[in-house]
Design a protein around this nucleic acid. Structure first.
Lengths: 301, 301
DNA sequence: CTTTTGGATCAGTTTTTCTAATCCAATGTA
DNA sequence: TACATTGGATTAGAAAAACTGATCCAAAAG
């Protein structure tokens, strides 16, 4: 079956729903005549009357009653879906792990919003989860990314490197224990970001340090909290230098072994997204903006 | 949400389904340019791309993938429903009880088909069923109708009267038993149409006949069979004179009490239908035709 | 008896849509 | 390397569709 003229279907649907051509005309922003004409056209197309025309308004025929619901449902479904899709065109769903989010991205985001007020950013502050970056849930992700060979439809844009080095509150070193060589670490509590990274271990491996247990100490759900704990003097955190610049500047954290800093060994901070959406306008805006922001002020040089 | 231009939606749906604008253009009987334009328009309306344009054809974006199914389903549903409705416009569903159908309507119907070949008659030969004439299943019904006061949205068009009188095969009266007064009926087997009518009883009441048992005898599922049984000499049927004109003419049935004939006491043969459809073109064609046919040759005058 | 309500209709105009021709880029083919 | 082929984009002009606004009409309400 060939579909009747769609606009005629719509006019009929509206007229039937409102039980009158005038109401339909109002809804569709046209004149009564236009609606009348559309309905007539549809009736001719189908070969039967859809309305009984009484002196007072119209009333659906059996056929009209039969036809109405499927039209209403269909138009409704299409309108709803188009609405969602259209709304999603102004939406940018970003996922960023906690420390990076709260210590870096979040404060910057306001500037992006000023620059592109039409883009509605939905930021999720969390780790990716077991299956890695979920392209159906998020348009972009920001985190430390191991560059080579991801899934083929994932694109990675490197942003900046960061460096790992042990950090602690200055008071911690005012006691009996000194911390001038890595071996001294055995006398301190180590503070860990638990769920993902094994930064102490990698740092130790990187510098071939032995004589302390890099898994000893206390664990936190993310690096932000571990860092805060360090500020409070709870121990020594393997700090991500890009993420605690404020503490370092204020002097609430110091780097007792500053000469021993290694580049994030898992990779670099990067923006990732699906190839599909990589050239979407909003994604592009964000890409451009974040590249600039990263270049301008990020690395702990 | 305001619906995007419907024709653009259709063009996109077709293009997406075929994975190409050319195939869609063929399906919609337009040029490639038209499809291209429609899709572009829709994309502008939604504010995002629905296709990735590669050198070789097109490929749906995430948004496109998201949008396609609801469109396909909706258009499919609408097309199907319109198809059904449109087909029903050329259909006339008539129900007629067995004896009337086989003895009167059926042979005449060929003439109607010649006159209006575009109307597809679907004749159901059966009694109405417990709830009476079902306006949702049938457009028209033909049967004996008690005129006054039916359900308000049922219309009745009287066609012709018929008459009841006992009938039997001539041989039946060649035996010992004669049949010259109603009281003689007690010596014969009565033949009944079982399911609906109590014609013997009403006839007896009509003429105040006593001295025989009007419920005695054999029953058949309809009057056609009872009449045929009478022709075979099985007994005496309360014949509907309009429905056994052939037998009476041929002499295979006779009316031993011809002076005692009563008009169908339940009413007259009539066409009935729902008020809704009473002026539908096909219904009108049938009304006009059957009125004429009835007037011209029906009554057993 | 007049007004109001709700739809039908028509001529003329506006808007949309389509076509047909031409481009363009990539890819396979000779 | 040349060259046809494929599949989409683009454009101006032409054709078709849709809309308006005025006018009609019939029934019902005031």
């Amino acid at each position: 079956m060939k579909l009747p003229p769609l606009n005629a279907l719509r006019a009929f649907e509206s007229a039937a729903r409102h039980n009158g051509f005038i109401a339909a005309a109002d809804e569709l922003f046209v004149t009564r005549g236009a609606v009348s004409r559309h309905v007539k056209l549809l009736e001719e197309h189908l070969g039967l009357k859809l309305f009984h025309r009484n002196h007072k308004g119209v009333e659906l025929t059996t056929a009209g009653h039969d036809l109405l619901p499927v039209l209403t449902e269909s138009f409704q479904a299409m309108a709803e879906k188009c609405g969602h899709i259209s709304a999603s065109a102004f939406e940018l769903r970003i996922i960023c792990p906690p420390a990076l989010s709260i210590r870096w991205l979040f404060p910057l985001l306001e500037r992006f919003r000023e620059l592109h007020p039409e883009v509605r950013i939905k930021l999720t502050t969390d780790f990716y989860g077991a299956k890695g970056f979920d392209t159906s849930e998020y348009d972009l992700g920001i985190s430390v990314e191991h560059m080579p060979g991801r899934s083929p439809n994932i694109v990675v844009l490197p942003l900046f490197s960061s460096y790992l080095s042990p950090a602690c509150a200055p008071n911690l070193l005012k006691g009996q224990q000194s911390l001038s060589s890595p071996q001294d670490l055995k006398n301190f509590t180590l503070l860990h970001e638990n769920p993902r990274r094994e930064d102490w271990k990698t740092w130790a491996r990187e510098f071939n340090v032995e004589g302390f247990d890099p898994s000893q100490g206390e664990a936190f759900p993310n690096l932000d909290m571990a860092t805060k704990a360090a500020v409070m003097g709870a121990g020594i955190v393997m700090a991500d230098m890009a993420l605690c610049r404020e503490e370092l500047q204020l002097g609430t954290l110091i780097l007792p072994l500053e000469h021993m800093k290694c580049e994030e060994p898992h990779g670099r901070y990067a923006l990732i997204g699906s190839r599909d959406k990589w050239d979407d306008p909003n994604v592009t805006k964000f890409k451009d903006w974040i590249s600039e922001v990263s270049a301008e002020g990020a690395p702990a040089a």
